[in-house]
Simulated assay, not measured.
Amino acid sequence: MVHGDCIGFPRVIKINRHEHSLYHTCFLGTGEWMCGVCRKSINGKYGAYRCCFCKDYAVHSRCATRKDVWDGLDLEGVSEEEDIETEDFVRIDDSLILHFSHKHRLRMEEKKEDGDFVCSGCAHPIISETFYRCDSLCDFILHERCANLPRTRATVLHVHLLTLCTDDRSHLNDLSRCDACDLYFNGFRYRCLECKDDHIEFDVRCLSVPDPFDYHHHPHPLFFNILINENEEAMTCDVCYHMSKYWLTCLECDFKICFSCATLPDKVIYKYDEHPLCDTFGQSDSNPYWCDICEHKIEELRNRYKCDECGPVLHVECALGSFRNMRQGYTFMTQHGKKYEVVLNDRISQLRCSHCDNDCHEPFLLMSTTSIDVSIYLCSSRCFTDYDVSV
């Protein structure tokens, strides 16, 4: 007996959780099977999708045909060609390349312990890492890992193949918001060229999160999950307590973390401390912590950055901010006709947010100048979103 909606299962499909095509079988066979999507057991007496190359990989029929896992194409009769990885740049010699994202040649430089360098690909600082720098001395710089990003990429975050795109500076309204972490960013992004109406794109840091994911503050591996039912309530992250559509969850203890927290750096640089501050989470202390920047109390068991040698402790928001994936000096125009620039908060002039009227403590702010030369400062992505729509 077969359900009416099960009799139409396609014979061969490709899902975003596995590198090979999967073939439907009406009898999986004896043994212990675990679904590659939901990570729950599969009864071998019934049908499932199985990989011919990876003998122990199988997926529930309904899990394999979920709209967030399968692109809806039946690949029966289509030959499976092996993907051939190619370099996404022209290598001129051992230290010189020509990257598709820049018109000048890029030269590899040795690791730097200091220096105010920001990657044009991921918009994050370059700290003690090998990088490529424009040979014509313009301000274009790339992490070595960002220079080696593939031009197309499959991911568990989306059913279609994603394409690596760069900033389109031919127009100013090239502002992106990552669908996974919900943070604004500029630089390289992976975009779906098939979902043109939905404008699906992700920043390169979220695309680098593996499945399963080893979170350094949790003993068990975390697996990707997504809210596919719009009527279902979004999950709350156990680290930042914010709601999220995409998250990574533990199968053993139901621990959940959002992509914004999963992509936080392990260490940050604080200009008033000679040591890097380390990411700490879940530590219960008898004495409460007070943030060295905003001077407000840090809630117990909340994520924070701390120097164990000198003592400074910072909120994650004060250390990195919600504009942490945007480069200083970046300008853009919104659809409401307002022009903004990402500026560094020197924390000396005691700036106040023009929307929430609180002191600005985040390291990067958005600045907009009105027609009467009055500077508008916005301290967070929430204030930016609300202010740009309301004014």
Score class of each variant (00 low, 15 high):
D211T: 06
F213A: 00
H216V: 07
H218W: 01
H218T: 01
P219G: 13
L222Y: 02
L222Q: 00
L222N: 03
L222G: 03
F223T: 06
F223R: 08
N225S: 14
L227Y: 09
E230T: 13
E233K: 10
E233H: 06
A234M: 08
M235A: 13
M235E: 15
D238H: 07
V239C: 03
V239D: 00
C240V: 08
C240E: 06
C240M: 10
M243A: 01
S244W: 01
S244R: 03
S244T: 13
K245W: 05
K245T: 13
W247I: 12
W247R: 15
L248D: 00
L251V: 05
E252K: 12
E252D: 07
F255H: 02
K256S: 13
K256Y: 07
F259V: 00
F259G: 01
C261M: 07
C261V: 08
A262R: 03
T263K: 00
T263E: 00
L264E: 08
D266T: 10
V268E: 03
V268C: 03
V268W: 02
I269L: 05
L277Q: 11
C278W: 01
D279F: 12
F281T: 04
Q283F: 01
S284E: 12
S284H: 07
D285P: 02
Y289G: 00
I293N: 12
C294L: 04
E295W: 11
H296S: 13
K297D: 10
E299H: 08
E300A: 09
E300F: 00
E300D: 10
E300G: 04
E300C: 05
R302M: 14
R302I: 10
R304P: 09
R304M: 13
C307L: 09
E309V: 09
C310F: 10
P312E: 08
V313F: 09
E317P: 02
L320D: 04
G321L: 00
F323E: 09
Q328F: 14
Y330V: 04
F332I: 07
M333Y: 02
M333V: 06
M333N: 04
T334H: 07
Q335H: 11
Q335V: 09
H336G: 12
G337T: 15
K338M: 13
K338C: 08
K339M: 08
K339G: 03
V342G: 04
V343Y: 09
L344W: 10
L344P: 03
